[in-house]
Design a protein around this nucleic acid. Sequence first.
DNA 1: ACTATTTTTTAGTCTAGGCTAAAAAATAAC
DNA 2: GTTATTTTTTAGCCTAGACTAAAAAATAGT
Lengths: 218, 218
Amino acid sequence: MYSLAEENYIKTIFHLQQTKSGAVSTNAIADSMDTKASSATDMVQKLADKKVLSYVKYKGAQLTEKGKKIATRIVRKHRLWEVFLVDKLGFHWDEVHEIAEQLEHIHSTELIKRLDTFLGSPAFDPHGDPIPDEHGNFIKTEKKLLSQLNKSQSGVCVGVKESSPEYLQYLDKKKISIGTKINVLGKEFFDGSMVIEVGRDQFFVSKKIADNLYVQTT
Amino acid sequence: MYSLAEENYIKTIFHLQQTKSGAVSTNAIADSMDTKASSATDMVQKLADKKVLSYVKYKGAQLTEKGKKIATRIVRKHRLWEVFLVDKLGFHWDEVHEIAEQLEHIHSTELIKRLDTFLGSPAFDPHGDPIPDEHGNFIKTEKKLLSQLNKSQSGVCVGVKESSPEYLQYLDKKKISIGTKINVLGKEFFDGSMVIEVGRDQFFVSKKIADNLYVQTT
DNA sequence: ACTATTTTTTAGTCTAGGCTAAAAAATAAC
DNA sequence: GTTATTTTTTAGCCTAGACTAAAAAATAGT
Ligand SMILES: [Mn+2]
Ligand SMILES: [Mn+2]
Ligand SMILES: [Mn+2]
Ligand SMILES: [Mn+2]
């Protein structure tokens, strides 16, 4: 059994090595967890002792198969609970992350099995992220960032990179949610900003906005 | 905000002072929490500093109004989650206590409000215990222990005192659940054992069994 | 009332998981 | 290739929450 702190580290390392390949640095972990590098080093050394990850001094950490299993189980729980909160309790997609951050640590395999069934074994969470199955396998969607599209290309929103309430509320205001079609009408190469069309509306988006929205090109 | 350990102490003290009136001893707390008296003393002193309880050295602890509020909120969460697990996920009543022990610590007032609505604002949990409302008020049922009944009296099962899987499984085997009518056919005053009638079955129960079943006399 | 026993608190130690400051290694600049 | 800078680790300290052993208070026995 792993402690709350250990589970949070494992999950963070898992997410970090999804984006960048190779070992993840203790600094990157500390940054991502809002803690200090020295704390991350301590924890990484402990997790290496427990064979959850491999760690080479000054080189960084990499989850073992064992570590990945643990991580995907936590991610599965997080995302299933998010579906529960939105689908069953009527929460809005910008309100569920913090609560799921706690619920993901409830230990009971039977619970997660039954929750999954209760929810109809969903494949995606409310933010468009795939839910790993009981073996840790999950769909790797072919998705791009909106910022990677060029003028006159279009895509369908399939998820968000950031899921802060502020960002999700912005998207709501602009009537963008999962499944929404977006046309790129113009792109400014100087700062990466765009003019996009959503439904009947046309408006300007900054690079920061476009950098956090995943789309599937059509 | 209170830590996991603090919350568990507060809840335990709340339950202890439900049964016995007056201050609860650090030893009673330690016993009930499966820890040592010295640890209980430390925690009680800390909770006294936080005005969660009043504490007089060598005399024991008593929750303040503030402490009782915290306690009933936790109890409310525990019991609502138990209802969720049984009613929505199909768990059996002997499987839910441990899981609810974790779920009761999830911090979100919005969550508990929505969960309550989702469940139809239940008044009792799967073990027959009343669920406090959002203000901490709950029904104080007029219930006796089965062991308090005498020969030829009868009652309806309204709850259990102990909710260990072993005990609940015993009750299942004997077809006793909430709402079941029980007739006392005989009582042995030497050891408190009884012969009872449940449906068409008649059988012997020890004092230990009868001491953990709540009934409402009819 | 005095002693013996039980209950409760205190003192001191341990581990998990943080932190800061200093040291060491890796990387970048010349 | 040496020096300067950045990254990473180590050393030492802190708090929460446990524990054991010893001390102190309360209670019981005579
Ligand atoms: Mn978490
Ligand atoms: Mn999500
Ligand atoms: Mn608990
Ligand atoms: Mn219960």
